[in-house]
């Protein structure tokens, strides 16, 4: 994992300040979306070897949730944007 993540609010910060949650590639379905959609949302994951978008929380910083795009082979971080700004669609 890269040692720094460029928080859009705080600038480059050590990764130890952040907490990862996981795959940011799927939106929370509508309440009536049906059980398949809900199963997919809660349990299925994009898990690529390569570029991947994830939710990371700047826990020891601005406490914003970010969508971080990084590489699961090289661990390079490509971008970090505020999850609220991107909305869920990333």
């Amino acid at each position: 994992m890269a040692s720094l993540i460029a928080c859009p609010h705080c600038g480059p910060r050590p990764k130890e300040e952040f907490t990862v949650r996981g795959d940011a590639g799927i939106n929370r379905p509508a309440p009536d979306a049906g059980k398949d959609a809900w199963y997919a949302y809660v349990y299925l994951r994009d898990n690529p070897r390569g570029r991947h978008k994830e939710h990371w929380h700047h826990t020891s910083g601005c406490r914003r949730w970010l969508v971080v795009e990084r590489d699961t082979m090289t661990h390079a971080v490509y971008s970090a944007v505020d999850a609220a700004v991107t909305g869920e669609t990333v």
């Binding site: 994992m1 040692s3 990764k15 130890e16 990862v20 996981g22 795959d23 898990n47 070897r49 991947h52 994830e54 699961t72 082979m73 090289t74 661990h75």
Partner: peptide, 14 residues
């Protein structure tokens, strides 16, 4: 585990 998705077969110092 280090805690993040990875296929790299290597971890971090922390």
């Amino acid at each position: 585990i280090d805690g993040y998705n990875s296929y790299a077969q290597r971890g971090n110092l922390a």
